[in-house]
Computed example of a mutant assay.
Amino acid sequence: GKWPVNLTGFSLGAHVIYFCLEELANDQGSEDAVLLGAPEDGSEKAWQGLSRVVAGKIVNGYC
């Protein structure tokens, strides 16, 4: 469908969401994305493209 969704994932699920957001950058976006334990690059450059497809906020809860 074309409704907004919230994406939430932990560890491998967060890793999958990260790559899904990269694909969505070529299509449509989501409302919010919450990634918990995602072992992704924290640089601003890596997240710029992803932030364009998320209408709300992106939270990367990784410690």
Rank of each mutant, 00 (worst) to 15 (best):
Y18M: 15
K57P: 06
L24N: 07
N26C: 09
G49T: 00
Y18A: 13
T8V: 04
S51A: 14
W47F: 15
V16A: 09
Q48E: 15
K2S: 06
D41N: 15
H15Y: 13
A14K: 13
G37N: 13
G49L: 00
A25W: 03
G56N: 10
S30Y: 01
E44M: 11
P39H: 09
T8G: 12
S30N: 13
P39W: 04
L50I: 00
G42A: 11
L24S: 02
L35W: 04
V59E: 06
G29M: 02
D27L: 09
T8M: 04
A33S: 14
L36C: 12
L50H: 11
G56C: 02
S43F: 04
Q48I: 00
A55N: 12
W47T: 04
S30E: 05
Y18S: 15
G13E: 12
A25P: 03
E44K: 14
G1E: 02
V53Y: 06
W47L: 15
N6T: 03
G29V: 00
A33Y: 07
W47S: 10
N26F: 11
D41H: 12
E22Y: 10
A55P: 02
I58C: 11
E31L: 03
L24V: 00
L12W: 07
L50D: 02
L24E: 08
V54D: 13
G1A: 08
G49W: 04
D32R: 14
N26R: 08
G37E: 10
G42K: 11
E40R: 13
C20L: 07
S43G: 15
Q48A: 05
D27F: 05
L50Q: 08
N26M: 10
Q28F: 05
G9Q: 06
W3C: 01
G56F: 02
N6E: 11
A38R: 14
H15S: 12
G9N: 09
A33R: 14
V54H: 13
V5M: 05
Q48R: 14
S43W: 04
L21H: 08
V34K: 12
K57I: 07
R52V: 01
E40V: 02
A38M: 10
K45G: 04
L36W: 01
L24R: 09
L7D: 14
S11I: 00
K2M: 11
N26T: 03
V54E: 07
P4D: 14
A14I: 01
G37A: 10
R52E: 10
E22K: 13
L12Q: 15
A55G: 15
D32S: 05
L35V: 01
G13V: 02
L7Q: 14
L24T: 00
A38P: 10
Y18Q: 07
